[in-house]
């Protein structure tokens, strides 16, 4: 039981990195960014290749962040400069990335037996399961703190106002488009970072691992913000971290209950619905809902 909780928390912390990214695009920029399904495996593909070539796994994290940022930049430029609708801009980059990922790492690539960030941590003989928990917790918290600090800077405040009040940003003489691009760059850098950590955790890359990540991220953001809706002192980043853990716990519960395999998705859906309803879904016609 304890082990199961530890594994689930670990999953939640790791995927919180991706949820932060979606929090920025969906909640702050009001931008449904489908790039995610491509930038997540992109981070994993790059990680698998560089680690297989003897690059330090921590450096692999940074490389993934860089390529993820590039993916976000593509979507941003397509949307802002080429004036393609937000949803389509994401779809275009995601579709292109599918081929890019196959070029980088093939259909799948294993890194079993090679040192990962989890192995390299100086924790002595500690079992992998605890190493993974500690490393993922540290990563989730560090990134959260960096984001929280960034949101308080002048640039961060501008970013937050783009989704809420574009006119305000314009009157300040700032280019809205550039802020959107910046947001997409940060978000996809985080998503690719998550892909890199997941690749190192499950020790393999697969071209199809990105499928459904956007949906997961959205669910995590919405669950998290719904749970803490009445507690305004809780930061958005904290809320989505919790949302990510709750989502993974739902799936683990469905698995643990030993329900018929074909019904698992349905059960998971019912669990989400319960959480959303019990967390009291938005009441008086606010603007952004699930």
């Amino acid at each position: 039981m304890l082990n199961l909780i530890i594994s689930t928390l670990t999953e939640g912390f790791i995927y919180a990195l991706l949820a932060y990214g979606i929090f920025i695009t969906y909640k702050i920029l009001d931008f449904p960014d489908l790039t995610v399904d491509g930038s997540f495996p992109l981070g994993a593909a790059v990680t698998a290749v560089v680690i297989n070539n003897g690059v330090n796994p921590f450096l692999a994290l940074l490389i993934s962040v860089a390529v993820g940022a590039l993916a976000g930049l593509c979507t941003g430029l397509i949307h802002v400069r080429l004036k393609v609708r937000d949803l389509l801009a994401g779809i275009i980059t995601m579709t292109a990335l599918f081929s890019v990922n196959l070029q980088i790492a093939g259909s799948n690539m294993s890194i079993i037996g090679i040192d990962t960030i989890f192995r390299l941590m100086p924790f002595g003989d500690m079992p992998q399961i605890y190493r993974k928990l500690i490393v993922s917790l540290i990563l989730a918290i560090i990134v959260k703190i960096i984001l929280d600090l960034y949101f308080k800077t002048q640039n961060g405040l501008l970013l937050r106002s783009v989704g809420d009040n574009e006119n305000l940003v314009c009157t300040l003489g700032i280019d809205n488009g550039n802020m959107k691009i910046l947001g997409l760059v940060i978000a996809n850098a985080l998503v690719a970072l998550c892909g890199s950590v997941v690749c190192q955790q499950q020790q393999s890359f697969s071209a199809t691992m990105g499928t459904g990540q956007m949906v997961f991220g959205l669910a995590a953001v919405i669950i998290g913000t719904t749970i803490f809706k009445k507690m305004s002192f809780v930061k958005g980043t904290t809320a989505v971290m919790v949302g990510s853990i709750v989502y993974k716990a739902c799936i683990q519960t469905a698995i643990t209950l030993g329900l018929p395999a074909n019904l698992m998705k349905l059960i998971t859906a019912v669990l989400f619905l319960l959480i959303l309803v019990l967390g009291n879904l938005p009441s008086k016609g606010g603007r952004k809902h699930a």
């Binding site: 594994s7 499950q202 459904g212 997961f216 683990q252 698995i255 643990t256 698992m264």
Partner: peptide, 11 residues
Amino acid sequence: DDNITTQIAQN
């Protein structure tokens, strides 16, 4: 679903 395979294995 690749992500579910991980959670099944952890279970």
